[in-house]
Simulated assay, not measured.
Amino acid sequence: MQLTEHRPGDHHIIRQAAADLIVVDDQRFTRSLIVGARLLESDWPVSSYDDLDASMIEPLLRHRPEVVLLAMGETQCFPPIELQREFLRAGVGLECMTVPAAARTFNVLMSENRRALAGFILKPR
C-alpha cells in the first residue's frame, strides 16, 4: 500500500453539504457547481436532472476523470439512460448519489489522489 502525505491546499475539501448548500474550502455555494481536486466551476447551469443533456455533462467529461459523482438532493436518483451511456462511451465511471453522500465520497477520493469530479445539482433557495 502506498501512503501519501496530504497537506492543506493540495485539493479542495467539502466542509458542509446539504441539498441547497455546499461549502468548498471556505466558500459557500447555493447554486449548482462542479468540483475537482483543483477545479471549481461555480456556474454550472443545472437545477435538476431534467436540465441535463450532452452539453451539460460535457464539462464533467472534458477533464477525463476516472469517476464522476453526480449528486442531487437527499434522495438518490439517476439521469436518463442516454446520458449514462455517454459516460460509458467516454470510459468514465458514473456514481449517482445524494448531495451529502457525494460530498463524503468526494473527500475520500481526493484523499486517495483519485481523478474524480463531483457535479452537485443544488436546489434553488
Rank of each mutant, 00 (worst) to 15 (best):
L60A: 10
F78Q: 14
G119M: 08
M72Y: 02
L69F: 13
R125D: 15
A18G: 15
E5Q: 12
L109Q: 00
T30A: 13
F29A: 07
R64S: 14
C96M: 12
L33R: 03
R104M: 06
P45N: 11
S55E: 15
A17S: 07
Q2V: 14
A101G: 09
H6P: 03
G73Y: 09
V99A: 10
D25W: 09
L83T: 01
R85H: 07
F120A: 13
P80S: 15
T4D: 13
F87D: 01
G119V: 06
I57K: 08
T30F: 07
P80F: 08
L61P: 03
A90T: 05
L60K: 07
E112R: 07
Q16V: 00
S55F: 04
I22M: 10
E82N: 06
L40Y: 06
D53F: 02
E112I: 03
S111Q: 13
A71Y: 06
P79I: 13
V67L: 10
F87A: 00
R115L: 03
T98E: 04
D25P: 09
F29Y: 15
N107G: 07
H12P: 04
L122W: 07
H11D: 08
A54P: 05
L109S: 00
E95W: 00
T4M: 12
E86K: 08
V24L: 07
R115V: 01
F87L: 05
V99M: 07
D25L: 08
P100L: 05
T30S: 15
M1D: 02
T75Y: 10
L94R: 02
Q16H: 11
L39H: 08
A103F: 02
H12K: 04
N107Q: 09
E41P: 03
F29K: 01
G91P: 01
V108A: 13
A37I: 04
S48L: 05
R115A: 12
F78Y: 15
F120G: 02
R15E: 12
M97Y: 05
L21N: 11
A118C: 06
S111L: 10
V99T: 13
D51H: 14
R38Y: 05
L21W: 11
E41H: 14
R89P: 00
A37S: 09
H6N: 14
V92M: 03
M97C: 10
E86S: 12
L70F: 00
R62C: 06
F106W: 02
D53G: 14
E58P: 00
R85K: 02
I14D: 06
D53I: 09
I14V: 11
M1N: 01
S55C: 05
R104S: 09
V99S: 07
I22W: 01
A19W: 12
R7D: 01
I81E: 12
R115G: 00
F29W: 11
R115N: 11
V23G: 09
G91Y: 06
T30C: 11
L94V: 11
A37F: 04
A17Q: 03
M72W: 04
D53L: 04
L94W: 00
E82L: 08
A37E: 00
D20F: 04
P124H: 10
I34T: 04
S48K: 08
R28D: 14
I81W: 05
E58Q: 14
H6F: 01
E74Y: 02
A103G: 04
D53S: 12
V35E: 05
V35G: 04
P8K: 10
I81K: 12
Y49T: 08
P80G: 06
S47V: 11
M110E: 12
D10Y: 03
E112T: 03
L122D: 08
L61W: 08
A102F: 10
D10R: 03
